[in-house]
Write a protein that binds this DNA or RNA. Structure first.
Lengths: 209, 209
DNA sequence: TAGATTGTTAATCGATTAACAATC
DNA sequence: TAGATTGTTAATCGATTAACAATC
């Protein structure tokens, strides 16, 4: 039984990664927890603690090997392999295209796209053909797809979510502007802008008073 | 000196809000902390605690008035007023359009758009004309805009961020796939998909072992 | 009144920080 | 060796939960 790793640690690992790939490009050889901490805005002890959950990556008196640590964190986060995703909802082809390009750079590929509108079926983007929604389960199962993106109208978003979950998807990225309900074993990531702005507006108001 | 409110509380308030507007539409009159808690997946005590930071909104033995609580939370989060936003980067007009529509429903308006490309200047979307980037500071100051969205290429994203900060912006939504550095008094919200997927992939890997 | 549910305090749990021995 | 920095333990801090008096 391994000790539980805080989700905050995983999120931070992701930000360390961003900084490390920068440092890696600049050909820095080693880096200390203090340097990482300063850039990210956390304490050095926290950086060391976060890393310590996964092993001993550094050298006392020296620091961490940038390139090695970079690769280690990629591996920890499961980003050293390619991930196939499915996109449900092709209402805005431009967005799908933009999304695909952005994701590709980080090792994620949209390998299937579905839509409810018969008019959209057969359209091809980045060599992926839009399929009718009734092929959803079959495609997910056959290709072992683990991450699904939901970009359908709010009214049908929960329905589609349920179908994805039943078909065995492990994580869902939700672009629809509503709260989705998923079983505990399915990861949900909300990508709706409006639903994230309340922290900003609250803090703006708070600091003005 | 008021007691510090955890950021997690603010985030949850946002999710309560989603559920409350649903319940409000379904014409429920009252709702208990237990009902909210169950839907959201937290403990009833936590719901009450979150609300208690801001006052006493409920009635013992009865619960909370759905419509009243709904309005109260909107007000707490600063969502009872309209917010003007600026968008820097018009690389993908379709996305700007989609974004604008989505935001409008929640009381956010994109009232100015900027781009570095001379070809884009003058194009109009939703009655907003794309302006040259050198008008950035002037427009922000004159209109007292507090939230900026960054959708420029990564290479110039930090530059634009610095300009927005200097011009007095209070919060930044970052669509560029890099980590931005902002002073502590500026709120940063990352809307980059790839930078958020590591929590999903980590958990998928974790649970498979 | 009896049952229900809030608001709040005290107890628990978990995450961050401080400190330092280990060691390059 | 002396200086630097990790890995890790113990102390602190903060957030969540349990419990219950107040009260509708």
């Amino acid at each position: 039984m391994k000790s539980k790793i805080p989700e905050a640690t995983i999120t931070r690992l992701g930000t360390y990664l961003g900084f490390l790939s920068e440092a890696d490009r600049e050909e820095n050889v080693t880096i200390s927890s203090g340097e990482i901490a300063e850039k990210i805005g956390v304490s050095p002890a926290l950086v060391r603690k976060d890393l310590a959950y996964f092993g001993q990556f550094g050298t006392r008196g020296v620091g961490y090997d940038v390139s090695l640590l970079h690769r280690q964190i990629l591996k920890i986060l499961g980003l050293n392999v390619d991930w196939n995703m499915t996109l449900v909802g092709f209402g805005n082809p431009e967005i799908a295209l933009w999304l695909g390009k952005d994701l590709k750079k980080h090792g994620f590929s949209i390998t299937s796209i579905f839509d409810l509108d018969p008019e959209k079926i057969g359209v091809t983007v980045n060599e992926v053909e839009v399929q009718p929604i009734n092929k959803l389960e079959e495609t997910i199962r056959q290709n072992g797809i683990q991450i699904g993106m939901i970009a359908v109208p709010s009214e049908v978003a929960q329905d589609i979510t349920d179908r994805l979950v039943k078909a065995g998807i492990r994580a869902i990225v939700n672009f629809a502007p509503i709260l989705l309900h998923v079983p505990r074993y399915v990861e949900l990531h909300n990508m709706n802008l409006a639903l994230g702005l309340e922290v900003l507006t609250f803090n703006i108001c708070e600091r003005s008073t």
